[in-house]
Lab assay of single mutants.
Amino acid sequence: NQASVVANQLIPISTALTLVMMRSEVVTPVGIPAEDIPRLVSMTVNRAVPLGTTLMPDMVKGYA
C-alpha cells in the first residue's frame, strides 16, 4: 500500500504548501504519492483543502 499526501490542517485556496501542512498516510483513494512531498513545497492549491483530505493531482497548480 502506497502512502499518499494528506492535509495536516485546513489549507486555504491559493495557499503555498509547506512541509507542516502535509503528512503521509495510506488512504483510499490513493492521491499524490508521499514521496512527492518535497516537490509540492511552494506549489499552491487551487481550492480549499480541509484537514484530513487526500491531496489529488488536480488540487495543486502545476503538479499534474
Score class of each variant (00 low, 15 high):
Asn1Val: 15
Asn1Trp: 11
Gln2Arg: 06
Gln2Val: 12
Gln2Gly: 15
Gln2Phe: 12
Gln2Leu: 14
Gln2Met: 14
Gln2Ile: 13
Ala3Tyr: 09
Ala3Val: 07
Ala3Trp: 07
Ser4Ile: 02
Ser4Thr: 04
Ser4Glu: 00
Ser4Phe: 03
Ser4Val: 01
Val5Ser: 02
Val5Ile: 13
Val5Asn: 02
Val5Pro: 03
Val5Glu: 01
Val5His: 01
Val5Arg: 03
Val6Phe: 01
Val6Glu: 02
Val6Lys: 02
Val6Gly: 00
Val6Cys: 05
Val6Asn: 02
Ala7Leu: 03
Ala7Gly: 03
Ala7Glu: 00
Ala7His: 00
Ala7Lys: 01
Ala7Met: 04
Asn8Met: 06
Asn8Gln: 09
Asn8Gly: 07
Asn8Asp: 10
Asn8His: 06
Asn8Glu: 07
Asn8Lys: 09
Gln9Ile: 10
Gln9Ser: 08
Gln9Asn: 06
Gln9Glu: 11
Gln9Arg: 14
Gln9Asp: 08
Gln9Phe: 11
Gln9Gly: 05
Leu10Gly: 10
Leu10Cys: 14
Leu10His: 13
Leu10Ile: 12
Ile11Tyr: 00
Ile11Ser: 02
Ile11Glu: 00
Ile11His: 02
Ile11Leu: 07
Pro12Arg: 07
Pro12Tyr: 05
Pro12Glu: 10
Pro12His: 08
Ile13Ala: 14
Ile13Leu: 10
Ile13His: 12
Ile13Trp: 15
Ile13Lys: 15
Ile13Asn: 13
Ile13Tyr: 12
Ser14Met: 15
Ser14Tyr: 15
Ser14Val: 05
Ser14Trp: 14
Ser14Asp: 14
Ser14Leu: 10
Ser14Lys: 11
Ser14His: 14
Ser14Gly: 15
Ser14Cys: 13
Thr15Pro: 01
Thr15Trp: 08
Thr15Gly: 04
Ala16Lys: 13
Ala16Glu: 09
Ala16His: 11
Ala16Asp: 05
Leu17Pro: 01
Leu17Glu: 00
Leu17Gln: 00
Leu17Ala: 00
Thr18Leu: 07
Thr18Lys: 10
Leu19Cys: 07
Leu19Phe: 15
Leu19His: 07
Leu19Arg: 12
Leu19Lys: 11
Leu19Asp: 04
Leu19Asn: 05
Leu19Gln: 07
Leu19Pro: 06
Val20Cys: 08
Val20Lys: 14
Val20Pro: 08
Val20Gly: 12
Val20Asn: 11
Val20His: 14
Met21Ile: 03
Met21Asp: 04
Met21Val: 03
Met21Thr: 02
Met21Lys: 01
Met22Gly: 00
Met22Ala: 00
Met22Phe: 05
Met22Tyr: 03
Arg23Leu: 04
Arg23Met: 05
Arg23Tyr: 05
Ser24Gln: 13
Ser24Ile: 08
Ser24Gly: 09
Ser24Val: 12
Ser24Met: 10
Ser24Cys: 08
Glu25Leu: 11
Glu25Ala: 13
Glu25Pro: 00
Glu25Met: 10
Glu25Thr: 09
Glu25Tyr: 09
Val26Met: 11
Val26Ala: 13
Val26His: 12
Val27Pro: 00
Val27Arg: 09
Val27Trp: 03
Val27Asp: 01
Val27Lys: 10
Val27Leu: 06
Thr28Gln: 11
Thr28Tyr: 09
Thr28Val: 13
Thr28Ile: 09
Pro29Cys: 05
Pro29Phe: 04
Pro29Gln: 05
Val30Pro: 11
Val30Lys: 07
Val30Phe: 14
Val30Ser: 13
Gly31Trp: 03
Gly31Ala: 02
Gly31Thr: 00
Gly31Tyr: 02
Ile32Glu: 01
Ile32Arg: 01
Ile32Phe: 02
Ile32Thr: 02
Pro33Phe: 11
Pro33Met: 07
Ala34His: 07
Ala34Ser: 13
Ala34Tyr: 07
Glu35Met: 11
Glu35Lys: 08
Glu35Val: 14
Glu35Ser: 10
Asp36Lys: 10
Asp36Ala: 09
Asp36Arg: 08
Asp36Gln: 12
Ile37Trp: 03
Ile37Ser: 04
Ile37Arg: 07
Ile37Asn: 00
Ile37Tyr: 02
Pro38Val: 13
Pro38Glu: 10
Pro38Trp: 11
Pro38Lys: 10
Pro38His: 09
Pro38Phe: 09
Pro38Cys: 15
Pro38Arg: 08
Arg39Asn: 08
Arg39Lys: 14
Arg39Tyr: 10
Arg39Ile: 09
Arg39Cys: 12
Leu40Thr: 00
Val41Ala: 05
Val41Lys: 04
Val41Asn: 03
Val41Thr: 05
Val41Arg: 05
Val41Pro: 00
Val41Met: 06
Ser42Gln: 09
Ser42Gly: 14
Ser42Trp: 11
Ser42Cys: 15
Met43Val: 04
Met43Tyr: 14
Thr44Ser: 12
Thr44Leu: 14
Thr44Val: 11
Thr44His: 13
Thr44Asp: 04
Val45Phe: 03
Val45Cys: 06
Val45Trp: 01
Val45Ala: 05
Val45His: 00
Asn46Lys: 12
Asn46Glu: 08
Asn46His: 13
Asn46Ser: 13
Asn46Ile: 08
Asn46Leu: 14
Asn46Cys: 09
Arg47Asp: 05
Arg47Ile: 09
Arg47Asn: 07
Arg47His: 09
Arg47Met: 11
Arg47Glu: 09
Ala48Leu: 14
Ala48Thr: 15
Ala48Tyr: 15
Ala48Pro: 14
Ala48Met: 14
Val49Gln: 02
Val49Asp: 01
Val49Arg: 00
Val49Phe: 03
Pro50Ser: 08
Pro50Phe: 08
Pro50His: 09
Leu51Ser: 15
Leu51Trp: 09
Leu51Asp: 13
Gly52Val: 03
Gly52Cys: 04
Gly52Arg: 04
Gly52His: 13
Gly52Lys: 04
Gly52Glu: 03
Gly52Phe: 04
Thr53Ile: 10
Thr53Cys: 08
Thr54Ser: 04
Thr54Ile: 09
Thr54Cys: 05
Thr54Trp: 03
Thr54Lys: 04
Thr54Pro: 07
Met56Tyr: 09
Met56Trp: 05
Pro57Leu: 04
Pro57Thr: 06
Pro57Phe: 06
Pro57Glu: 07
Pro57Asp: 05
Pro57Gly: 07
Pro57Ile: 06
Pro57Tyr: 08
Pro57Ala: 15
Asp58Tyr: 13
Asp58Asn: 12
Asp58Ser: 11
Met59Val: 08
Met59Arg: 01
Met59Leu: 05
Met59Thr: 06
Val60Asn: 01
Val60Glu: 02
Val60Gln: 00
Val60Trp: 01
Val60Met: 05
Val60Ile: 13
Lys61Ile: 14
Lys61Phe: 11
Lys61Tyr: 11
Lys61Gly: 09
Lys61Glu: 13
Gly62Lys: 06
Gly62Tyr: 09
Gly62Ser: 11
Gly62Asn: 10
Gly62Ile: 04
Tyr63Trp: 14
Tyr63Cys: 04
Tyr63Ile: 04
Tyr63Ser: 04
Tyr63Lys: 03
Ala64Trp: 05
Ala64Ile: 14
Ala64Gly: 10
Ala64Glu: 10
Ala64Met: 14
